[in-house]
Design a protein around this nucleic acid. Structure first.
Lengths: 343, 343
DNA sequence: GACAAGCTCACAATCGTTTGCATAAATAGG
DNA sequence: CCTATTTATGCAAACGATTGTGAGCTTGTC
């Protein structure tokens, strides 16, 4: 049915090995022969079967990308960037989803391992031991997780959390809540550590509450607890949760930012269109996707890099934060609206 | 390095063909032997190499999913549903992106064709001839596009457009604009046809404007033209464009829905969080993803289905639509120059 | 004119599986 | 107990490519 190297060889009147070399080792075949091979290949519509090639070379030219939840707005830009970068390097990418389930995660890595050259594992929920185990079976690059000895690209979410707390304190908040993410999230632990430290440093009280589901519903569910805690400002695990929280607070009659200030994390597209526009810690997700793919493909064939890249985060101040209620109006520095034009 | 069927055979003391059959044809091997094979396979951590299997069976257990833009909020729910459905049927999915470029689209289909059992082609921008050509090379299921003789799943966007126009007319609008999508979009043509028909039927004037880039920027860019057209209501190609348009109108000093009503299409997550909440035509994207995968995998091995499924759409009325301003367009002419200079 | 060196290309083994065919063992029928 | 039938397993040829080895031709050198 499909046209193979054998068909090309027959039509061109050469041996299949010559056809193969015409493509993969041009200097080993006479220019004239090569031209003939290439033209008949073109004419016949020959496309090398990558699976067959992989069988003997050991390189599939495929990579796997495993994420927790494709529909979480954090991931699409990362997937997009990774796919683009991979294709630029002549690779195709499998995308799979774990639904935040560590078991599915491990199973997926193993299922994919034979048909990819490596896997980018985003926001893993597995413990370090399991991850190290998997990394022995297939090249792995971690995103949003640091494990000693394994290559990873993380966001400097700790720095971002510090920035967020500092911003809130500067606005006059003394009673701040932190909504943590799912159990097993390295990011959430980092964020919590840094937020606690920043709060201590500036003498603010930090109430930690979680784990929460990293979705809008998780934020909505947490609203009541926030109101009960008496906090005047909240740092959430991600934008989705922040938006849910704002919605939940609204239902309880609390206005953002008048009554409560809310800071998200990730700078997803959502925070730019919601009202109030969301103050958030921007994480360079597209850059992370590109970097992860590069790291995976970089080390020629054998040597595995073990580099740990950390990408810069920054605070984007929009309209969901303000001084706590009862503060006299004061010309505090807020970002100019022009700073964040649309996309 | 990796453990193969040969290793299992050696350790279990049987021939490789027996190992193979222990997995793929259990009834052909003695229960006792089978148990031994399975246990040593388990113990050795054997995982069949799907690429090698594909070489001989012709079935890869992979499918391709090609979309225009992963980051467009329309697609993630579709990708998510497709991936989930595929995995439920023991298939993995390649995700690739065309960036709305027909050439990339064709190239991608061909590049993927050898390592997948079929491809779900979403929102193709190619012409019918090219698509038919590609469908001859690899099983194809179309989403958001109908081509005679090819299986497809489409949204009844025509019905939705009619609903939207009717809703606007019922609110009192007589001057409606339609922002079309990218050139080559079947969906956009359908929408335009139905909107024109609905407007004619109800005696409203419909101004068609496009093609537009199906993004926020596309919507922002179209704002000026909308203001110039004097339309009091706009139906856009998708939510993204609607949100951009609202932003663009805002910059020109026009409020939604007080001055202009806006209706989006797709019911993405964005329309639920933006303010005003977006009135939109809901398209069942997740269902479309599942249906497309099912159609692709359904026909056993040989027979290609040619079914054309159309999924129901519905109008979701939120806050971006309202009756047109009662005041005649006096203020418009005087307000425009000042706003233009402010740009 | 013979021999070494270079080119160009064909041969064949190989990657990890599946699968039609053959064979051996076990069971059944008479 | 012999043959016919079933059952369980081994053998070997594929699938579509890559690649080490060596054969046949040219060249170049002395």
């Amino acid at each position: 049915m499909a046209v193979t190297i054998r068909d090309v060889a027959r039509v061109a009147g050469v041996h299949i090995s010559t056809v193969s070399r015409a493509f993969s080792a041009p200097h080993l075949v006479h220019a004239e022969t090569r031209a003939k091979v290439l033209s008949t290949a073109e004419q016949l519509g020959y496309r090398p079967n990558r699976a067959a090639r992989a069988l003997i070379t050991g390189r599939t030219h495929n990579i796997g990308l495993i994420v927790a939840d494709i529909a979480n707005p954090f991931f699409p830009p990362l997937i997009k960037a990774a796919e683009s970068q991979a294709r630029m390097r002549d690779h195709h990418v499998f995308v799979a989803e774990t639904d935040e389930d560590p078991l599915v995660e491990a199973e997926l890595v193993r299922a994919l391992s034979k048909q990819v050259d490596g896997i980018v594992l985003c926001s893993p929920r597995l413990n370090n031991t399991s991850i190290e185990q998997l990394a022995r079976e297939v090249p792995l690059v971690l995103v949003n997780r640091r494990v000693p000895g394994l290559p990873s690209v993380t966001m400097d979410v700790a720095h971002g959390a510090g920035l967020a707390i500092d911003h809130l304190v500067a606005d006059g908040h003394r009673d701040i809540a932190l909504l943590t993410g799912p159990r097993g999230s390295w990011t959430s632990r980092e964020q919590r550590r840094a937020a606690t430290q920043a709060a201590d440093r500036s003498g603010a009280r930090l109430t930690v509450s979680g784990p929460n589901h990293p979705t809008e519903d998780g934020g909505i569910a947490a609203a009541e607890q926030i109101v009960g805690s008496g906090a005047t400002a909240v740092l959430t695990y991600n934008d989705l949760m922040a938006i849910g929280l704002i919605e939940g607070l609204d239902r309880l009659g609390k206005r953002v930012p008048a009554d409560v200030s809310v800071v998200g994390v990730d700078d997803t597209i959502l925070g730019r269109v919601t009202r109030p526009r969301l103050t958030t810690v921007a994480t360079p997700t597209a850059a992370a996707g590109r970097a992860a793919v590069d790291m995976l493909l970089q080390h020629g064939d054998d040597r595995r890099t073990t580099a740990q890249v950390s990408l810069q985060t920054e605070l984007i101040v929009r309209d969901s934060t303000a001084p706590p209620p009862g503060t006299p109006p004061h010309g505090h520095a807020t970002a100019s609206p022009a700073v964040d034009s649309a996309l």
